[in-house]
Write a protein that binds this DNA or RNA. Structure first.
Lengths: 144, 144
DNA sequence: TTAAGTGCAAACCTTTTGCTGCCCC
DNA sequence: GGGGCAGCAAAAGGTTTGCACTTAA
């Protein structure tokens, strides 16, 4: 299963960088993979707080940073300017409604193709991109 | 001159929203227009600190927020995750080097065209977009 | 065994806010 | 003259860090 693959990537990363595989680290990544979509540090803190295996806020922060260094997750800022994360294999671009905060994920091939063209034009080697379009979603548009 | 036009937009905005035109507000916008490119709150604080007309950090923050509400500037996060601003009429997308932090500005018509297509596909009314591609610039690539 | 990890609380940094005297309209 | 201002310092919010104890390998 795909999730197991990602967990293994993380374990390999930990081994590679002389870090240890603790149940807290596994648990956090597992929760992220279960949750899918977008998540904040606080989400995870709260989930573990209401379970028998509480994990401290500091550890969640440290683990998120590690997961980001490992290239497994990435962050962006939502319509409230709050930091939000997502799994990289689910990477897509975002339409963010300025009114209700809804986030519509999308990917578009032409879009990606043009980005590659732009990079080669500037002799730039791309690693990661983020495209966010802020506006008003259909639902909020029709409500007025 | 273009800068005067922007200053007038700001003045109109202030008048419209029952706010006052103070020398601090004019000075901050003038500095931004002179500086061009990208700037941080701290940049402006430092510039005024070393001049005869010091402006407090609180006022710079308040004015930046006001300028952003007025649609005159927008923010993004640089390669150090630090908040950075730019004038909107100079809006363009960014290639950000993860090594040296250099920011290459660009605009691309095809890119914008596709974004419009995507929005109409999702019945989404776009207001503002931000496209950042993180990677390694030519200079840093050849240095290794 | 022992290097690295966790939890806690304190420290940090950036940004916002309450208040007082001040200035623009 | 009076309602918004600027400056200050304190507070807030989010994130990191030093330390003492614990744990994976």
């Amino acid at each position: 299963m795909k999730n197991q693959r990602i967990i293994n990537i993380f374990k390999t990363y930990l081994a590679h960088t002389g870090k240890k595989i603790t149940w807290e680290r596994e648990e956090i990544l597992t929760l992220l993979l279960e949750k899918q979509g977008h998540f904040k540090v606080e989400d995870i803190v709260k989930i573990t707080e209401s379970s028998k295996n509480r994990i401290s806020r500091a550890t969640v922060y440290r683990t998120f940073n590690m997961l980001e260094s490992a290239g497994i997750i990435s962050h962006f800022y939502d319509h409230n300017h709050e930091k939000s994360y997502e799994i990289n294999h689910e990477h897509h671009d975002h339409l963010i409604c300025a009114k209700c905060g809804k986030i519509i994920d999308f990917t578009n091939e032409d879009q990606e193709k043009i980005q590659k063209q732009i990079c080669s034009q500037y002799h730039f080697f791309p690693i990661f991109h983020s495209l966010h379009i802020y506006g008003i979603c259909q639902n909020c548009l029709t409500k007025d």
